[in-house]
Design a binder for these strands. Structure first.
Length: 357
DNA sequence: TACCCGTGGAA
DNA sequence: TTTCCAAGGGT
């Protein structure tokens, strides 16, 4: 009587039949034929996918690869073009680091990404997960890849009782043990596909799982108890104000650029008061950036990761440019203005209250 | 370590 | 409606 095949063989066999088809992925069949993924596309997709769903990333990945087909093209792009193209995807430090990384690779590494996880880890925006993912997927290094999916799968397989994030070290040890010397990239992608489609956070479909026989949590009927997590803190609520200036002649909107660091760093916005996760910004007419016929245009609310924000929205229609601290964005081109979602909401609320021309 | 940093879809 | 959370990194 023979036992079950090794864990990685069972998982890879499942992946060969059920791998998701994704724009940045080389299918296991093509991979077996010797097709290599483009490291630039692997890197770009991995950065976009940090804390972001596949569905949200797809259109951004298409735009970026069309507009900047290789790392050199991206390195030569203007900052505001890349920040604008990233608008709406969130976590804008990723876009700043993306550009810094592209320029480092282009200008100091001959346009080639390093081929080991250790070396990749030194580049901006590339941490433990992303370095291992690129090294294994693009360069076949059997580096232990641990993302949220793999944390969930692994804590269930071994019924790891330690709550996250303290369990990360033990998880990494287990993943390093499981990762095969060959097909390490397919193995990592198989673990992520398993977590995304079978071993889901709620109601995992263990009946379809190719490795359920070896899963301790499943054997004990406790699969939904893992991963254990520390309780999270309550989110505070903050307030602030946005002042949307509209040019009388053509309805264009006055925008400026936020400082490079901090919340929404480097992104475009209408004039806002100085809110943060810790303090309210100024509100009311006295907080206006310059004198004009400001009218209340309602409020917008927005939930960030660690606090909720409500902005008063004020609107004024003005004749001339009152400041040189920004630029006029044509209203018909608002989608192209590169506004983060909070600011897009504020401008839309102001325009909804504006008298039609 | 603990906190900061977006967004939108699912349940 | 609220809560959760998705291919995390920086500090």
């Amino acid at each position: 009587m023979t036992g079950l095949p090794p864990f990685s063989d069972r998982l890879l066999g499942w992946y060969d039949r059920h791998a998701r088809s994704l724009p940045w992925r080389v299918s296991p069949g093509d991979r077996a034929q010797g097709v290599r993924p483009d490291p630039y596309r692997v890197w770009l997709s991995e950065v976009m996918l940090q804390q972001t769903t596949v569905a949200a990333v797809k259109s951004y990945f298409a735009v970026f690869t069309q507009r900047w087909p290789d790392v050199q093209a991206l390195a030569n792009a203007a900052d505001e073009d890349v920040m604008g193209a990233w608008a709406g995807l969130g976590y804008y430090a990723r876009a700043r680091n993306l550009l810094a990384c592209a320029r480092e690779v282009t200008r100091h590494r001959n346009g080639r990404f390093p081929e080991t996880a250790d070396a990749l880890r030194d580049l901006p925006g590339i941490g433990d997960y992303t370095s291992a993912a690129i090294a294994s997927i693009a360069f076949d290094e059997p580096a232990p890849v641990v993302d949220g999916n793999i944390e969930r799968v692994t804590t269930r397989l071994y019924a790891i009782e330690t709550p996250l994030p303290a369990a990360r070290k033990a998880i990494r040890v287990r993943v390093a043990e499981m990762t095969p010397k060959s097909r390490a990239g397919d193995f990592a992608q198989a673990m992520m596909d398993l977590g995304a489609t079978i071993c889901t956070p709620r109601s995992p479909t263990c009946i379809l799982c190719p490795v359920s026989e070896g899963c301790v949590a499943r054997q004990e009927g406790r699969q939904e108890e893992f991963p254990k997590k520390l309780a999270k803190k309550a989110k505070p609520s903050r307030r602030g104000a946005a002042f949307v200036a509209r040019r009388a002649r053509d309805g264009a909107i006055l925008l400026r650029r936020r400082p490079a660091s901090g919340m929404l760093g480097g992104m475009a916005e209408p004039f806002t008061t100085d809110w943060s996760s810790k303090t309210d910004g100024a509100t009311g007419l006295d907080a206006a950036p310059f004198a004009a016929d400001w009218r209340r245009a309602g409020e917008v609310t927005h939930g960030f990761t660690h606090f909720d924000l409500t902005l008063e929205v004020w609107l004024a229609t003005i004749q001339a440019e009152p400041t040189d601290a920004g630029w006029w964005a044509p209203v018909g081109d608002l989608n192209a203005a590169g506004l983060p979602t909070l600011m897009r909401k504020a401008v839309e609320a102001a325009l909804a209250a504006a008298p039609s021309r």
